[in-house]
Each structure stands twice: as structure tokens, then as C-alpha cells.
């Protein structure tokens, strides 16, 4: 087979992404489970709460970085699709944030945990990416 120039390393980018992202998600879940056990005692010090919060956040941050690295290293069309889905996910989330904010101001809903906006962003990103994929199916 002829040797060809490879504009971008899609295979390498995908492999690197899987190798980093999924272990991080496993660590994330395990950390949450461990934290819920460690923080059951009311007497646990503040520093422990802060440390565990950072420890739980880190795998998520690394997961986001893995997505961005994948987008950067993948071939041009995949990169464009991912960046667009990330932007569309952000737009969906921002719209949801505005709505939630006004619903709170007008006393329609009560307190909403800020935590949920993180998973909501990934959900929106996933929806945007899937819709793009469905539209491109032959």
C-alpha cells in the first residue's frame, strides 16, 4: 500500500483520549464513593472537606482536558465537529442557566445545586454531538 502523508493522527488521538478519559471517570466515581463514606461524620474538619472536593474535581478537569486534547489532535473535520458541539453545549447550558436564574428570582423554583451544572454541560455537549452525528449518518 502506498505511504501517505497523515494530516492528523485520528487513531492516536482517539487512543490517547480513551486511555485517559475512562480511567479518570472511574477514579471520579470511586472518589465520590470514598468521599461519601469519609464525610459521614459531622466532626470531620474543614480541610478534609476542601481536600476531598478538590480530589473529586481533579478527575473531571482532566477529563475535560482529555476532550480538548482529542479535539486538538484529531483530524480537522472531527475537531471542527467537537468544537462546535462544545460550543453548542455551552450555549444550551447558558440558556438553561438564564432560565433557572430567572425562575429563582421570580420565586417559581427553590434552590438549585450548582453542582448539577457540570454534568448538565456534558449532557448538553453529548446531545449536540449526537445530533450532529445523526445528521451525518449515510
Amino acid at each position: 500500500m502506498a505511504t501517505i502523508m497523515q494530516p492528523r493522527g485520528f487513531r492516536i488521538a482517539t487512543r490517547r483520549y480513551r486511555r485517559l478519559f475512562w480511567p479518570m471517570m472511574v477514579i471520579y466515581v470511586l472518589t465520590i464513593m470514598a468521599c461519601s463514606g469519609l464525610l459521614q461524620e459531622d466532626a470531620s474538619p474543614l480541610w478534609l472537606h476542601v481536600t476531598l472536593a478538590i480530589a473529586t474535581t481533579l478527575p473531571g478537569v482532566i477529563g475535560i482536558w482529555a476532550i480538548l486534547r482529542m479535539a486538538h489532535k484529531a483530524d480537522e473535520y472531527t475537531r471542527a465537529s467537537q468544537i462546535r458541539a462544545l460550543a453548542e453545549g455551552g450555549a444550551m447550558l447558558a440558556s438553561g442557566l438564564f432560565l433557572t436564574g430567572f425562575l429563582q428570582i421570580y420565586d417559581v423554583i427553590g434552590r438549585v445545586e450548582v453542582f448539577w451544572f457540570g454534568p448538565a454541560y456534558f449532557f448538553c455537549f453529548g446531545i449536540a454531538y449526537c445530533l450532529r452525528g445523526v445528521g451525518e449518518t449515510v
Binding site: 500500500m1 501517505i4 497523515q6 494530516p7 492528523r8 493522527g9 485520528f10 487513531r11 484529531a74 483530524d75 480537522e76 473535520y77 472531527t78 465537529s81 452525528g133 451525518e136 449515510v138
Partner: peptide
């Protein structure tokens, strides 16, 4: 696979 791009890229 031969071009080292995604299948979606080829389709597009």
C-alpha cells in the same frame, strides 16, 4: 483508517 481520519470525515 487509511487516511487516519474519522469515518464521519470521509462521509462529509
Amino acid at each position: 483508517d487509511q487516511l487516519d481520519v474519522s469515518r464521519q470525515s470521509v462521509n462529509a
